[in-house]
């Protein structure tokens, strides 16, 4: 299990390849990456992500450990950035490795659902029309109830 919180961009392909290599007992690798999305109706200059150093790593480790306890996972990876990023840049990625795909998919979804609303990150959108903190969505909180 590897948890990385960093300001710099990461290379999705290199990270996915490194994660997938070196084991012969994992039949399924799932990766998900979140990308800064522009909205033509409200053009975005950049997104700035604030976080809580110390608690962020602790929260992500707890979420990943819970995923490993609930599913048959060989490994899990979470990389999450903070600081300023431009539309099209990758914000974060998760990867899961499991003997079979169902575990890998479900664990990746669980990691995403939990890190959206239980890891201390806050997104601010700086747009042509002004700046605004992204509001948490009820559906993101509701998503936790299915687990």
């Amino acid at each position: 299990m590897r948890i990385v919180v960093q300001e710099n961009p990461f290379d999705l392909g290199a990270e996915a390849n490194a994660f997938a290599s070196g084991r012969t007992d994992m039949g399924a690798i799932v990766t998900f990456s979140g990308v800064v999305r522009d909205d033509p109706a409200h053009p975005l200059r950049q997104m700035v992500i604030e976080h809580y150093p110390g608690m962020t790593e602790k929260a992500l480790e707890k979420i990943a450990a819970e995923a490993q306890a609930r599913w048959s996972l060989g490994d899990a990876l979470v990389i999450h950035r903070f600081g300023p990023m431009q539309p099209g840049e990758m914000i974060m990625m998760v990867a899961t490795a499991a003997p079979h795909r169902r575990d890998a998919f479900e664990a990746a979804e669980y990691l995403m659902d939990y890190l959206k609303s239980r890891a201390p990150f806050w997104k601010k959108e700086q747009g042509v029309e002004g700046d605004a903190w992204v509001a948490a969505k009820d559906e993101d909180e509701d998503a936790l109830t299915r687990w």
């Binding site: 809580y52 999450h80 974060m92 959206k116 990150f121 806050w122 948490a136």
Partner: peptide, 10 residues
Amino acid sequence: VAFFPPMTGG
């Protein structure tokens, strides 16, 4: 002790 709005990671 830390105070903050609901989190918006991912």
